[in-house]
Design a protein around this nucleic acid. Structure first.
Length: 276
DNA sequence: TGGAATGTTCGGCT
DNA sequence: AAGCCGAACATTCC
Protein backbone atom coordinates (compact mmCIF):
# COMPACT_ATOMS: atom_id res chain seq x y z
CA UNK A 1 0.00 0.00 0.00
CA UNK A 2 2.29 2.71 1.11
CA UNK A 3 4.68 4.86 -0.81
CA UNK A 4 5.42 8.51 -0.20
CA UNK A 5 2.05 9.88 -1.43
CA UNK A 6 0.03 7.30 0.51
CA UNK A 7 2.00 7.84 3.71
CA UNK A 8 1.71 11.61 3.27
CA UNK A 9 -2.06 11.22 2.88
CA UNK A 10 -2.29 9.03 5.97
CA UNK A 11 -0.27 11.55 7.98
CA UNK A 12 -2.58 14.36 6.88
CA UNK A 13 -5.60 12.42 8.10
CA UNK A 14 -3.90 11.43 11.36
CA UNK A 15 -2.47 14.77 12.40
CA UNK A 16 -5.66 16.76 13.13
CA UNK A 17 -7.13 14.01 15.29
CA UNK A 18 -3.97 12.84 17.04
CA UNK A 19 -2.12 16.06 17.81
CA UNK A 20 -2.60 17.07 21.42
CA UNK A 21 -4.20 13.81 22.44
CA UNK A 22 -2.73 11.40 24.96
CA UNK A 23 -1.96 7.72 24.44
CA UNK A 24 -3.66 5.90 27.33
CA UNK A 25 -2.09 2.60 26.35
CA UNK A 26 -1.28 0.34 23.43
CA UNK A 27 -2.90 -3.09 23.20
CA UNK A 28 -1.21 -5.69 21.03
CA UNK A 29 -2.32 -8.98 19.51
CA UNK A 30 0.85 -9.62 17.53
CA UNK A 31 4.14 -8.87 19.27
CA UNK A 32 5.81 -9.11 15.88
CA UNK A 33 4.74 -5.54 15.16
CA UNK A 34 7.35 -4.23 17.55
CA UNK A 35 10.93 -3.71 16.65
CA UNK A 36 12.68 -3.59 20.00
CA UNK A 37 11.41 -4.84 23.33
CA UNK A 38 7.63 -4.93 23.52
CA UNK A 39 7.41 -4.13 27.24
CA UNK A 40 9.74 -1.20 26.90
CA UNK A 41 7.73 0.25 24.02
CA UNK A 42 4.40 -0.24 25.77
CA UNK A 43 5.70 1.42 28.92
CA UNK A 44 7.22 4.29 26.98
CA UNK A 45 3.96 5.04 25.16
CA UNK A 46 1.57 4.93 28.10
CA UNK A 47 0.48 8.39 29.20
CA UNK A 48 2.45 10.25 26.53
CA UNK A 49 1.01 13.25 24.73
CA UNK A 50 1.29 13.35 20.94
CA UNK A 51 2.92 16.63 20.00
CA UNK A 52 3.24 16.20 16.27
CA UNK A 53 2.67 13.68 13.46
CA UNK A 54 4.87 13.84 10.39
CA UNK A 55 6.28 11.81 7.51
CA UNK A 56 9.90 10.80 6.96
CA UNK A 57 10.17 8.87 3.70
CA UNK A 58 7.61 6.10 4.06
CA UNK A 59 7.70 6.31 7.85
CA UNK A 60 5.07 7.92 10.05
CA UNK A 61 6.69 9.70 12.98
CA UNK A 62 4.72 10.42 16.13
CA UNK A 63 6.49 13.00 18.27
CA UNK A 64 6.24 12.18 21.96
CA UNK A 65 8.60 14.87 23.22
CA UNK A 66 11.43 12.71 24.53
CA UNK A 67 11.20 10.14 21.77
CA UNK A 68 9.60 9.32 18.43
CA UNK A 69 7.26 6.47 17.68
CA UNK A 70 8.12 5.33 14.18
CA UNK A 71 5.42 3.45 12.30
CA UNK A 72 6.20 1.74 9.02
CA UNK A 73 3.17 0.35 7.21
CA UNK A 74 5.10 -2.34 5.37
CA UNK A 75 3.22 -3.67 2.38
CA UNK A 76 -0.34 -3.98 3.70
CA UNK A 77 -0.43 -1.94 6.93
CA UNK A 78 -3.27 0.50 7.56
CA UNK A 79 -4.01 2.87 10.41
CA UNK A 80 -7.75 3.15 10.95
CA UNK A 81 -9.82 5.26 13.33
CA UNK A 82 -12.75 2.89 12.90
CA UNK A 83 -11.84 -0.56 14.29
CA UNK A 84 -14.81 -2.11 12.50
CA UNK A 85 -12.89 -1.78 9.23
CA UNK A 86 -9.90 -3.79 10.51
CA UNK A 87 -9.68 -7.34 9.17
CA UNK A 88 -6.30 -8.18 10.76
CA UNK A 89 -5.84 -5.89 13.77
CA UNK A 90 -2.34 -6.14 15.22
CA UNK A 91 -2.21 -3.24 17.67
CA UNK A 92 -4.58 -0.62 19.06
CA UNK A 93 -3.66 2.78 20.43
CA UNK A 94 -6.22 3.85 23.02
CA UNK A 95 -6.47 7.61 23.10
CA UNK A 96 -7.56 10.28 25.55
CA UNK A 97 -8.45 13.89 24.78
CA UNK A 98 -9.07 13.05 21.17
CA UNK A 99 -11.96 13.04 18.74
CA UNK A 100 -10.97 9.44 18.16
CA UNK A 101 -11.11 6.85 20.91
CA UNK A 102 -8.77 4.41 19.20
CA UNK A 103 -6.39 4.06 16.31
CA UNK A 104 -6.07 0.50 15.02
CA UNK A 105 -3.10 -0.89 13.14
CA UNK A 106 -4.46 -3.37 10.61
CA UNK A 107 -1.87 -5.45 8.77
CA UNK A 108 -2.56 -8.85 7.12
CA UNK A 109 1.00 -9.58 6.07
CA UNK A 110 2.75 -8.56 9.29
CA UNK A 111 5.34 -6.50 7.41
CA UNK A 112 4.59 -3.27 9.30
CA UNK A 113 6.58 -2.17 12.35
CA UNK A 114 6.33 0.07 15.42
CA UNK A 115 9.62 1.25 16.85
CA UNK A 116 10.84 3.84 19.32
CA UNK A 117 13.71 5.98 18.12
CA UNK A 118 15.59 8.96 19.50
CA UNK A 119 16.03 10.74 16.24
CA UNK A 120 15.33 10.29 12.52
CA UNK A 121 19.05 10.04 11.91
CA UNK A 122 18.79 6.50 13.32
CA UNK A 123 16.89 5.53 10.17
CA UNK A 124 19.78 6.59 7.93
CA UNK A 125 17.60 7.41 4.96
CA UNK A 126 18.53 9.42 1.90
CA UNK A 127 17.06 12.79 0.94
CA UNK A 128 13.35 13.30 0.27
CA UNK A 129 12.67 13.27 -3.49
CA UNK A 130 10.59 16.42 -3.06
CA UNK A 131 13.42 18.25 -1.30
CA UNK A 132 16.59 17.25 -3.15
CA UNK A 133 17.80 19.76 -5.77
CA UNK A 134 18.16 18.78 -9.44
CA UNK A 135 21.95 19.11 -9.35
CA UNK A 136 22.33 17.12 -6.12
CA UNK A 137 20.13 14.41 -7.57
CA UNK A 138 22.07 14.23 -10.83
CA UNK A 139 25.37 14.09 -9.00
CA UNK A 140 24.19 11.30 -6.68
CA UNK A 141 22.75 9.33 -9.60
CA UNK A 142 26.01 9.49 -11.52
CA UNK A 143 27.97 8.05 -8.61
CA UNK A 144 26.16 4.71 -8.80
CA UNK A 145 26.36 1.83 -11.25
CA UNK A 146 23.31 -0.35 -10.60
CA UNK A 147 20.04 -0.16 -12.56
CA UNK A 148 18.36 3.22 -12.08
CA UNK A 149 15.12 1.46 -11.12
CA UNK A 150 16.77 -0.36 -8.19
CA UNK A 151 18.53 2.77 -7.05
CA UNK A 152 15.32 4.79 -6.87
CA UNK A 153 13.82 2.07 -4.68
CA UNK A 154 16.82 2.18 -2.32
CA UNK A 155 15.65 4.17 0.72
CA UNK A 156 19.24 4.98 1.72
CA UNK A 157 19.60 6.73 -1.62
CA UNK A 158 16.24 8.51 -1.71
CA UNK A 159 13.48 8.19 0.88
CA UNK A 160 9.92 7.56 -0.19
CA UNK A 161 9.99 6.20 -3.74
CA UNK A 162 8.28 2.81 -4.16
CA UNK A 163 7.47 0.52 -7.03
CA UNK A 164 4.49 2.42 -8.47
CA UNK A 165 5.98 5.90 -8.48
CA UNK A 166 9.38 4.69 -9.66
CA UNK A 167 7.87 3.04 -12.73
CA UNK A 168 5.66 6.06 -13.40
CA UNK A 169 8.55 8.53 -13.03
CA UNK A 170 10.87 6.53 -15.31
CA UNK A 171 8.10 6.46 -17.93
CA UNK A 172 7.57 10.21 -17.69
CA UNK A 173 11.31 10.82 -18.02
CA UNK A 174 11.57 8.25 -20.85
CA UNK A 175 14.30 6.25 -19.14
CA UNK A 176 14.63 2.49 -19.48
CA UNK A 177 14.52 0.93 -15.97
CA UNK A 178 17.66 -1.17 -16.56
CA UNK A 179 19.79 1.85 -17.46
CA UNK A 180 22.84 1.99 -15.17
CA UNK A 181 22.36 5.07 -12.97
CA UNK A 182 25.70 6.51 -14.04
CA UNK A 183 24.68 6.14 -17.69
CA UNK A 184 21.58 8.32 -17.41
CA UNK A 185 22.42 11.43 -19.48
CA UNK A 186 22.41 14.69 -17.47
CA UNK A 187 19.35 16.05 -19.27
CA UNK A 188 17.47 12.83 -18.56
CA UNK A 189 18.53 12.96 -14.92
CA UNK A 190 17.01 16.43 -14.75
CA UNK A 191 13.89 15.14 -16.48
CA UNK A 192 13.69 12.31 -13.93
CA UNK A 193 13.96 14.76 -11.06
CA UNK A 194 11.10 16.78 -12.52
CA UNK A 195 9.07 13.65 -13.25
CA UNK A 196 9.35 12.43 -9.65
CA UNK A 197 8.16 15.80 -8.37
CA UNK A 198 5.28 15.99 -10.79
CA UNK A 199 4.13 12.41 -10.18
CA UNK A 200 4.48 12.53 -6.39
CA UNK A 201 2.81 15.93 -5.98
CA UNK A 202 -0.07 14.99 -8.25
CA UNK A 203 -0.49 11.66 -6.41
CA UNK A 204 -0.59 13.47 -3.05
CA UNK A 205 -3.22 15.80 -4.45
CA UNK A 206 -5.27 12.74 -5.46
CA UNK A 207 -4.91 11.08 -2.06
CA UNK A 208 -2.52 8.36 -3.29
CA UNK A 209 -3.15 5.20 -5.32
CA UNK A 210 -5.65 2.57 -4.16
CA UNK A 211 -4.52 -0.42 -6.18
CA UNK A 212 -5.51 -3.18 -3.81
CA UNK A 213 -7.04 -2.01 -0.60
CA UNK A 214 -5.19 1.11 0.46
CA UNK A 215 -7.25 3.62 2.43
CA UNK A 216 -6.29 6.56 4.64
CA UNK A 217 -7.01 6.70 8.38
CA UNK A 218 -10.56 7.87 7.70
CA UNK A 219 -11.12 4.90 5.36
CA UNK A 220 -11.05 6.95 2.15
CA UNK A 221 -9.51 5.59 -1.04
CA UNK A 222 -7.07 7.45 -3.25
CA UNK A 223 -7.73 8.26 -6.90
CA UNK A 224 -4.30 8.39 -8.50
CA UNK A 225 -4.47 4.79 -9.79
CA UNK A 226 -6.54 6.09 -12.71
CA UNK A 227 -3.54 8.21 -13.74
CA UNK A 228 -1.07 5.31 -13.91
CA UNK A 229 0.55 5.12 -17.34
CA UNK A 230 2.59 1.93 -16.91
CA UNK A 231 2.21 0.43 -13.42
CA UNK A 232 -0.22 -2.50 -13.54
CA UNK A 233 -0.81 -1.95 -17.28
CA UNK A 234 1.12 -4.90 -18.70
CA UNK A 235 -0.22 -5.87 -22.12
CA UNK A 236 -2.21 -2.68 -22.52
CA UNK A 237 -1.34 0.00 -25.07
CA UNK A 238 0.99 2.84 -24.11
CA UNK A 239 -1.06 6.00 -23.66
CA UNK A 240 1.61 7.97 -25.48
CA UNK A 241 2.59 5.78 -28.46
CA UNK A 242 0.29 2.76 -28.50
CA UNK A 243 3.07 0.21 -28.02
CA UNK A 244 2.24 -2.65 -25.63
CA UNK A 245 3.37 -2.02 -22.06
CA UNK A 246 5.88 -4.63 -20.94
CA UNK A 247 6.61 -6.15 -17.57
CA UNK A 248 10.08 -7.35 -16.61
CA UNK A 249 11.66 -8.10 -13.23
CA UNK A 250 14.36 -5.77 -11.93
CA UNK A 251 15.84 -6.38 -8.50
CA UNK A 252 13.03 -8.84 -7.74
CA UNK A 253 10.35 -6.20 -8.38
CA UNK A 254 7.83 -6.20 -11.19
CA UNK A 255 8.77 -3.37 -13.53
CA UNK A 256 6.46 -1.83 -16.11
CA UNK A 257 7.58 0.27 -19.04
CA UNK A 258 7.13 1.11 -22.70
CA UNK A 259 9.92 -0.25 -24.88
CA UNK A 260 9.34 2.45 -27.51
CA UNK A 261 9.11 5.47 -25.17
CA UNK A 262 11.85 4.12 -22.90
CA UNK A 263 14.33 2.47 -25.28
CA UNK A 264 17.09 0.33 -23.83
CA UNK A 265 20.43 2.16 -23.84
CA UNK A 266 23.36 0.78 -25.81
CA UNK A 267 24.64 -2.44 -24.32
CA UNK A 268 21.46 -3.20 -22.39
CA UNK A 269 19.32 -6.00 -23.71
CA UNK A 270 15.75 -6.02 -22.46
CA UNK A 271 14.74 -9.46 -21.31
CA UNK A 272 12.63 -11.14 -23.97
CA UNK A 273 9.59 -13.14 -22.98
CA UNK A 274 10.46 -16.81 -23.00
CA UNK A 275 14.20 -16.21 -22.73
CA UNK A 276 16.08 -17.86 -19.91
C1' DT B 1 -1.84 -24.38 -8.29
C1' DG B 2 1.82 -21.21 -8.82
C1' DG B 3 2.82 -16.60 -9.00
C1' DA B 4 2.54 -11.95 -7.76
C1' DA B 5 1.52 -8.16 -4.52
C1' DT B 6 2.31 -0.59 -2.68
C1' DG B 7 8.47 -3.24 1.40
C1' DT B 8 12.48 -3.97 4.34
C1' DT B 9 16.29 -6.69 6.29
C1' DC B 10 19.94 -9.74 6.40
C1' DG B 11 23.70 -12.61 4.72
C1' DG B 12 26.96 -13.43 1.25
C1' DC B 13 29.75 -12.15 -2.60
C1' DT B 14 32.81 -9.00 -5.10
C1' DA C 1 34.58 -1.90 1.84
C1' DA C 2 30.60 -0.15 -0.12
C1' DG C 3 27.51 -1.78 -3.38
C1' DC C 4 24.82 -5.10 -5.28
C1' DC C 5 21.99 -9.35 -5.32
C1' DG C 6 18.89 -12.81 -3.78
C1' DA C 7 16.31 -15.06 0.01
C1' DA C 8 13.18 -14.50 3.60
C1' DC C 9 9.35 -12.60 6.03
C1' DA C 10 3.22 -13.72 5.92
C1' DT C 11 -1.06 -13.49 3.73
C1' DT C 12 -4.36 -12.85 0.09
C1' DC C 13 -5.92 -12.91 -4.44
C1' DC C 14 -6.35 -14.58 -9.17
Amino acid sequence: MPELPEVETVVRTLAPRLCGSVIARIATTASRVFRGRQKEIEAALAGKRILEVRRHGKNILIELGTRLLRIHLGMTGKLLFDPVNATHPRATLHLRNSQARVLVFDDPRHFGRFELIEDVSALALGPDPLEISPSEFTQALHARRGPVKSLLLNQAFLRGMGNIYTDESLFQARIHPLTPACAVPPEKAKALHEAMRRVLLEAIEQGGSSISDYVDAEGREGAFQSQHRVYGREGKPCSRCGEVIRRIVVGQRGTHYCERCQPAPRGIRSPVAGAK
